[in-house]
Design a binder for these strands. Structure first.
Lengths: 197, 197
DNA sequence: GATTTTCGCATAACACCGTTAGGAATTTTA
DNA sequence: TAAAATTCCTAACGGTGTTATGCGAAAATC
């Protein structure tokens, strides 16, 4: 068994720390000024290195976004699961999940934007897998509610569309200033959606 | 009454022509390679002028996009009105409008993307006015259908969210390759939506 | 008709961007 | 101690939106 030399181990930690710092810097910049203003050079300045160093940890700028995207989906998934567990009735669960989704999206707008390419920074889109996995709680709840009606895939996509539609219209500014009003509308629509199943 | 001198008049025509050429060049570039690859320099090359000339017709790059956005909304509005007139029953009208919306969005993706900032090129978002005006047909149809239930604003936003949600999830690649499947699901959801009113 | 003014347009530059090549200095290995 | 590898920087390439400057030609004025 090979013994790992202490300085090697320390170095590995350092690399991990630096990688985390890059991700944090990118996110902080996005929170501050929005994704379009995030640049490799600014990230480098924050972590007090020169730009090329970043390319030792990430293949390119896109790779940083992809990593943050998956962070975002994991966090959102967790939030939705928690929301579901706060209720026992399936319809109540659906409403709780939807409400939590909304709140999470705006409290973590920088994540949401990179997850759904809302600022068009990404050149490759997130995979369908992320959607399916993140919405697992919803899929299960829908299965419990619908009992007899349309196929589950349809309901699942309908739910995603209603959520992302409302959120992205507000977030991209088309309905700026109507946040809470639109959230009410979204929940109203979700109730009708559940009732129609 | 002041007489307009012929060379002045000719010049005004030239300016109009050039402005139209700039808009067309931008759109063609977007159709070819997507909005992120559209640049002032490339537009200039196409119209066979140098970049500064473009700034005599548009304040900046954003202004070009804003103009195309309003073109897009006008065209979409017209398409939706036509769809409505193809049916007499209100529910059928709603479905026809929704189906047409879908088809239009993908047949005019370069417009749709600039209208909803799907590629994040815009820094200022389109106004709520454009949404309200474009969706006028829908608002009227919804008023005819709902008779007693929830307020019209809510239904109107719900419709926009369902449409834009489905479209943007497919268009931004999250559901790539599932175009026709998702369209079916969207129409299914829309039927349930109409039935629940 | 000559002179002045205005107009149309290009050259060149500024400040930024993502990304990469090359090399210096330091640290680890032999 | 010499060789090898690692770490990190400087400098550059080709691209971006945008603007200052100025030249030549056309139009307006005298």
């Amino acid at each position: 068994m090979e013994k790992i030399k202490p300085h090697k181990e320390r170095r590995l930690k350092e690399i991990e720390v630096l990688k985390a710092a890059i991700l944090k810097a990118a996110r902080d910049l996005a929170i501050e000024d929005g994704w379009p203003k995030v640049s490799i050079r600014k990230i480098a300045a924050i972590i007090a290195y020169t730009p090329p160093v970043i390319y030792e940890h990430f293949k390119n700028k896109e790779a940083i976004l992809i990593e943050l995207e998956s962070h975002g989906f994991r966090k959102l998934k967790y939030a939705l699961e928690e929301a579901r567990e706060s209720q026992s009735d399936p319809v109540e669960q659906l409403l709780a999940i939807s409400s939590t989704f909304w709140d999470w999206a705006f409290k973590n707008a920088e994540y949401y934007q990179v997850m759904f390419n809302l600022d068009g920074i990404r050149s490759t889109p997130p995979s369908t897998e992320a959607l399916k996995d993140t919405g697992k709680s919803v899929a299960e709840v829908l299965k419990q509610i619908h009992l007899f009606s349309a196929d589950t895939d349809e309901l699942f996509f309908n739910w995603w569309a209603m959520m992302h539609g409302h959120v992205s219209l507000v977030m991209s500014g088309q309905l700026r200033g109507m946040d809470s009003q639109v959230k009410r509308h979204m929940l109203g629509g979700m109730k009708r959606f559940a009732k129609a199943l």
